[in-house]
Design a binder for these strands. Structure first.
Lengths: 342, 342
DNA sequence: AAACGAACCGAAAAGGCTTTCCGAGAAAGT
DNA sequence: ACTTTCTCGGAAAGCCTTTTCGGTTCGTTT
């Protein structure tokens, strides 16, 4: 089993190994490596060389044990496969990784029991803080106020207003979308969106209608709720065209829906964007860039949500106290599926 | 800043707190909680109750410091946004999370410098092992043999045959695909695939051609390399139909390509699957289930790759030594885009 | 020459836990 | 009653690093 060769077997090199090689005490070695001032330059150099020769890496466990802070955080996601969690996770990992913080990744698979289990495990590892990433924007139960470390909720806000949550501005996203369509001169705008049980669907619709109202307009027909799928986009478009053939823009609740909408529009002989402008939400590259024409979409800036959550957690660890739901603006990405009416 | 209330301020509860509350020594408390036999049942019970009352969580740092093993592993991915990394990562997280192992997530963003930085940081945290997840199946540079902990490469194998790598069987995937098309009675099969610079494209094509040769057949035309995009799928299909209008199956190098292929087939009046069967690779849900008809695809079983890598790392940590590239079979997922010729 | 200060260096403790070893007390045997 | 054998519980070492504080060695000053 265990080979006699290779460094795998040798016990990890410690500070005392370095000290011995450099001919100084452990204390001096530590000071030399950490830039403390009480070491002669020549001695310091000797220690540094010894450390490099042994490729010494200070044991963060011991360091953390002593300091009371470990430089680790827990990233608790509810579904890794969800395409919303990933960018947030990237943003957070990015913000932390740049510093000296390491991230524990835990996937609760949407199960509260498993989530609780992970929280306990993470606390046992003495993480300095937690980020809880949701898979949809609907509020979720708080982990509780009794935790010994700060917690920041990302994407899915906590139900407890005392917690700090960072979410994209869905209402604003709806406003941005309609604003763009209006700027393109569209006035007969329909809205086909997904599952009405999703707060995101409701809020985007709310923002869209508010922006229309500001312009003295209203949607063509009602908001068409359904499912977050291409199939629903196709079906809803068929109905829409039957009832309102004069529609000149379709705002879609997601890029998937938009794909379905565009397919049916093209099949029925409506040109995009000349006759009907189409746009979606999420800015999911694989869908937006592959469609014909490429799809204008509202990007939720999820990476920024992740980064903001990481920064918020940072400052909370440092003692800062914020609470409530903070929203981050979304961003319009214009492609070929929307254009001014000529 | 620091409030006087709440548990955030109070110092974390330690074993000695528990011992004091239970009226025993630290040693006894430890033994009681860890199921050591040298404690009377009644005493043990008292300790356990004390621990629960204080919601005591043993400090894993201290434990790891002592044991020499931390129960943590590093998961080094080269691009988090890549859709291939995520399932592998899920599988690994799953396999570890079930045990008592926590996962450090690091994204090197395809940068060797950053990767090296992360490796050093992880070693400083005394991880018990590393999993390196690539974003494509082409071999990548080894992290080296001199690392003090075992390493397993997933999806992208290491260039060093002494390392252990777990990858999906791309050649086999190609064989499986063609096998299915042959079983459907198709004999005039074309292959439209992606970037020829990807080993996956080459190997799938190789497997497909081998399976055809076994049946005494050959591809319709050459392998059509291009890009991993719907656009290429559309363009290649147009050319294909011009030259070989009698084709009865198109094997696509990815689901994206397949989407493009199916769009053009439908536009040109070819029925899928009656006239032409279509299938892809990757089994990317959002594409396969939304297409018309739903797309038959070869699933790479990436979650299993992740799980296998985790298990391999486990056994390597325990002292087992394996090396070389181990392949995992892929899996056919049949949907509406393929059917027997009637 | 004695004393003082500055500059360096080292011993030791702390941090939380596990484990080994030992002592004390109780139960059993003579 | 005394020894032997168990059973329990405690003291202490050890893991690795940082930091405080006391000590040593110079060079300077009076």
């Amino acid at each position: 089993m265990t080979q006699a060769t290779g460094p795998s077997r040798s016990h990890p090199v410690t500070l005392s190994d370095v000290a011995r090689l450099a001919g100084v005490s452990i204390a001096t070695a530590s000071k030399a490596l950490n830039g403390r001032s009480q070491v002669r330059a020549e001695t310091r150099q000797r220690v540094i060389e010894a450390a490099e020769r042994l490729s010494f890496r200070p044991n963060q466990l011991a360091r953390g044990l002593l300091a009371g802070r470990t430089g680790t955080v827990g990233l608790l996601t509810s579904d890794l496969e969800g395409r919303f969690s990933i960018p947030i996770l990237m943003g957070a990992e990015d913000a932390f990784g740049a510093g000296e913080v390491a991230v524990f990744l835990c996937d609760a698979r949407g199960d509260a029991i498993r989530e609780q289990h992970h929280v306990r495990a993470l606390l046992g590892r003495r993480v300095d803080g937690l980020i809880v990433v949701g898979s949809r924007t609907d509020p979720r139960p708080s982990l509780g106020r009794e935790l010994p470390v700060p917690v920041v909720y990302a994407y899915a806000p906590s139900e407890d207003p005392e917690d700090l949550s960072i979410v994209p501005d869905s209402v604003g996203a709806g406003r941005i979308a309609v604003g763009h369509l209006l700027a393109c001169g569209r006035t007969r705008i329909a809205h086909i969106t997904g599952d009405p049980g999703y707060l995101a669907a409701q809020e985007r619709a709310e923002g869209a209608q508010a922006a229309l109202a500001d312009a003295g307009l209203a949607l063509v027909g009602e908001v068409r709720f359904g499912a977050w799928s291409e199939g629903w986009g196709r079906a809803a478009t068929a109905m829409l065209l039957d009832r309102h053939p004069d529609v000149d823009a379709v705002l879609c609740g997601s890029d998937q829906i938009a794909r379905g909408v565009m397919d049916v529009l093209r099949e029925r002989g409506h040109r995009v964007p000349e006759d009907v402008a189409v746009m979606g939400f999420d800015n999911w590259q694989v869908l937006t860039s592959a469609s014909r024409p490429p799809l204008t979409s509202v990007d939720l800036n999820l990476e920024q949500v992740g980064r903001a959550a990481a920064r918020a957690l940072f400052s909370a660890i440092a003692g800062g106290r914020r609470s409530g739901v903070e929203t981050l603006p979304c961003r319009l990405v214009i492609r070929g599926s929307t254009a001014p009416l000529s």
